[in-house]
Amino acid sequence: MDGERLFCDIALAARIERAEARLIAESSGAARARRGDSVGFARPFAGGVASFAEADSPFDKVAGLGFAGVPDAAELDEIERAFAELGAPVQIELCQLADAAVGAFLTGRGYRLESYENVLGRRVGDATFPDGVRYCRDDELETWLAEVADAFAVADTEGLPSHEEFPRGTVIDAMRDMAGVLRFVAERDGDFAGGASFRVTDGIAQFTGAATVPVHRRRGVQTALLRARLAVAAEAGCDIAVVTTQPGSKSQQNVQRQGFDLLYARAILVKGTSAISSSGADSRQAS
């Protein structure tokens, strides 16, 4: 039911984390296909995935683990060596509802807590596609990528800032490589006001990023993009929609106003060199 609050138990969290791991693995593979080489990897690990797409990519991470027991130490040794050989730290995104023994295992190996991100969700019910939003055409993909990347670069100052900063070209490549997504354009007075993307994984509508051009912020653009994706999720037969935001951000406030509930947080655990940034420019949400 549309108005019913969504409770997240361990089974639902595991389902969402599997979908996230699949998105990362497929997008990491798309990065290698774009380049035409085999540098990097996306390998199963402890029920999740360990991925290196390319230098400084948002798909360089370990995700989805914590629901299949504590990782094997020798297997994690191999993962750490694989990242080290490519000059990258190991970043693990660990769900709050994962086995607590996994967190203890990782901190015991020298992983440090750097940040958090929130996962929110809602049931998908009947929704109407709003005026002012349309699908992105194939012939305007480059414009969409450029506009959204520029909007991401001007982050909102509310909430916990992202611990990561990505070069503009890397953001564009990551959005291009995001596997299986539909893209949307929001317009105001004939101008590009914002963009968003969405994909379906095992009945989950994954809202895979949205950004509003700064001059058009606080004008309902992100709300319209949320409603558009909810309408498409309903048409696709999804039962839930999920979105990731920075904690305490305007994006989190916006999605909660659209009926999303805070399901859980992910702890960002890092071992190795990591550049901590206060810019908040990432591939998630910018109001």
Score class of each variant (00 low, 15 high):
Thr157Tyr: 06
Thr157Val: 12
Thr170Val: 15
Phe184Cys: 11
Asp261Asn: 12
Leu160Val: 14
Gln253Ile: 08
Ala234Cys: 07
Gly87Asp: 07
Gly29His: 14
Ala88Pro: 05
Ser287Cys: 13
Asp202Leu: 04
Gly248Lys: 04
Arg176Gly: 00
Val119Gly: 00
Ser115Cys: 04
Ala33Trp: 13
Arg137Thr: 10
Cys136Arg: 09
Leu113Gln: 11
Val102Cys: 06
Ser287Asn: 14
Ala63Gly: 01
Ile16Ser: 02
Thr157Ala: 15
Val232Arg: 04
Val243Pro: 06
Ala155Asp: 04
Val124Glu: 08
Arg22Glu: 14
Gly248Ile: 05
Gly125His: 00
Arg112Ser: 12
Arg257Asp: 09
Gly195Trp: 12
Leu113His: 15
Gly69Gln: 07
Thr244Ser: 10
Gly272Val: 09
Ser28Glu: 11
Ala211Thr: 06
Thr212Tyr: 03
Glu54Thr: 12
Tyr264Gln: 06
Asp138Ala: 15
Ala88Trp: 07
Val270Cys: 06
Asp191Val: 02
Arg5Phe: 02
Ile276Val: 14
Ala231Ile: 01
Asp177His: 14
Arg123Asp: 00
Leu106Trp: 08
Asp177Gly: 11
Val62Pro: 04
Ala286Ile: 12
Pro167Met: 10
Lys61Pro: 00
Gly121Val: 01
Arg15Met: 07
Cys95Gln: 02
Ala267Met: 15
Ala241Ser: 09
Ala101Ser: 10
Tyr135Thr: 10
Leu182Phe: 14
Tyr111Met: 04
His163Asp: 13
Val215Phe: 01
Asp282Ile: 15
Asp261Ser: 12
Phe45Ser: 05
Phe83Val: 12
Leu23Ser: 10
Ala267Lys: 10
Arg199His: 14
Leu226Trp: 03
Ala31Ser: 15
Thr212Gly: 01
Arg219Thr: 10
Asp189His: 06
Asp126Tyr: 03
Val242Asn: 03
Phe192Met: 07
Ser27Pro: 09
Glu80Ile: 02
Arg134Val: 06
Gln285Cys: 15
Glu4Leu: 02
Ser274Tyr: 15
Asp99Thr: 03
Gly125Thr: 08
